[in-house]
Design a protein around this nucleic acid. Structure first.
Lengths: 258, 258
DNA sequence: AATTCTTAGTACGCAAAGCGAACATCGTCA
DNA sequence: TGACGATGTTCGCTTTGCGTACTAAGAATT
């Protein structure tokens, strides 16, 4: 009976259904039933029940044989955003510093071995609007945000994350050797900021500084800029700006709620 | 057989669990188990299983006896936002017009008898930053966005929504008689825009124009401004600006994806 | 401090929910 | 055309998870 020692307090059907909903991401905004089944590792029939339930609940829509998310999923996130006053307290701060520094500023945390973007400044005259928005996942190992997040963790946990993560070679500059990455993380920890150059997107330099206090769940702010943009002492100015931004956000107390 | 004619393709446990997740909104960001059970109308044991499953999946966190949403719920919405290019195509347009008109501009649709805010401009020098963000629900009957959304529907459906909705008296100006509200909707439909004055928040005037083409699922853009702000011909300027904004958004084609 | 009221955790029998092999259906390529 | 692969649906058997009943522990009230 070791096999079927399921926790009676957990509903496995519900958990399976959730993973159906979670499987819709940026790369695959609409999927067929079989595709969902494959990506969730569930039986096709199981995935189907989950998907149909989501359709009935209004979170998925079915056009032909393709299933895609409906706007209603936003309502789920809305509860979190409202509760933490993101619109009123976080966004203005991000925007303010974004304008001042002439970049985009992003707030992020660690989630499932990836970087989860929580909020992002939305000013017009940032250099480029990268395609990422709140709720997007970006890789952990090759971004400044990710490195800084890992630097907020005990060294051992960071190492575990690195080992668990796959390390694709996004660009020719991407570090691939785990120990090289760990070294970068160590450096970020000691110096209190992280910089990556073209490791995720070519020609883009990423900056990040910690926001959470040590011991708390890691939260960071960062920004990216094209290489040319950051000539001369610009890097320093950016990092200082981010530090100030982090301090202000810390004062609002939004970080406490994770 | 009327009672237990459950659809075999729908997972009721999953549906119940989902409604646990959905019950967390702005008013009640953290709840106790008993409270969840009450608000979902589920048995306590059922609600407990749902909540514990959500905790295990990382969407809820438990501190003491309070349960609250984790940032991970944002990842669910992230799929939708990325898929529809909200960050790249919608937000810039909203911001641009918000700055030009010196207000906030909001994109919204109909959801479960309420207005669901999909996106909102985030500029600094809007007059006030109201506490609403993407993913928030606001009432249907007493907002310009809501009225305009209903005006996009066949008159009959709008009437059904009014009848189904509870009509609280938010302010002394709130219309309460259903036929008066329906008349306003009728007017919005014919003139192509909707204006409400202090019916939801005192001293605030709301404007909204349709974005979707007739027959499609209703989508609108709107904005609100304090009464003093909209002196003279300002209302007209605002409405014209919104019309242009709507036209631009229409051209991006984001509306098609609902 | 003793009281009521509310809330959280546990147990378990029974009904029904949902699993997945098997079947049906649709496309696609030889 | 026929065979094959991929996808969608059905249905009997088993498991899940529902909800009553009970225990216990906090809050709130006296």
């Amino acid at each position: 009976m070791t096999k079927t020692e399921q926790d009676r307090n957990i509903s496995s059907s519900f958990a399976k259904g959730l993973s159906v909903l979670a499987v819709f991401d940026a790369e695959t905004p609409s999927m067929t039933l079989a595709e969902i089944a494959r990506r969730t590792g569930q039986d096709r029939a199981t995935a189907r029940r989950g998907a149909l339930t989501l359709v009935q609940a209004g979170y998925l829509r079915q056009q032909g044989r393709m299933l895609s998310l409906t706007p209603r999923v936003l309502a789920l996130a809305g509860g979190f955003l409202q509760a933490n006053q993101f619109g009123r307290r976080v966004q203005p701060v991000l925007n303010h510093h974004a304008r001042k520094l002439e970049t985009e500023v992003t707030l992020a945390i660690l989630d499932q071995g990836r970087v989860l973007l929580l909020a992002q400044s939305t000013t017009e005259h940032g250099p480029v609007t990268y395609g990422f928005t709140a709720g997007a996942h970006i890789p952990l190992v090759h971004t400044s945000l990710g490195r800084m997040l890992m630097a907020c963790l005990p060294a051992e946990e960071a190492a575990d994350l690195i080992n668990a993560a796959e390390i694709p070679q996004h660009t020719e500059h991407s570090l691939t050797r785990p120990d090289a990455i760990l070294e970068q993380i160590e450096q970020a920890r000691t110096q209190g900021y992280s910089v990556t150059d073209s490791e995720f997107e070519p020609g883009i330099i990423g900056y990040a500084v910690p926001l959470s206090r040590p011991g708390q769940t890691p939260v960071v702010v960062g920004s990216s800029a094209p290489r040319g943009h950051a000539a001369g002492g610009q890097s320093e100015r950016l990092l200082q700006g981010l530090q100030i931004c982090a301090a202000e956000l810390r004062q609002t107390g939004v970080v406490e709620g994770l």
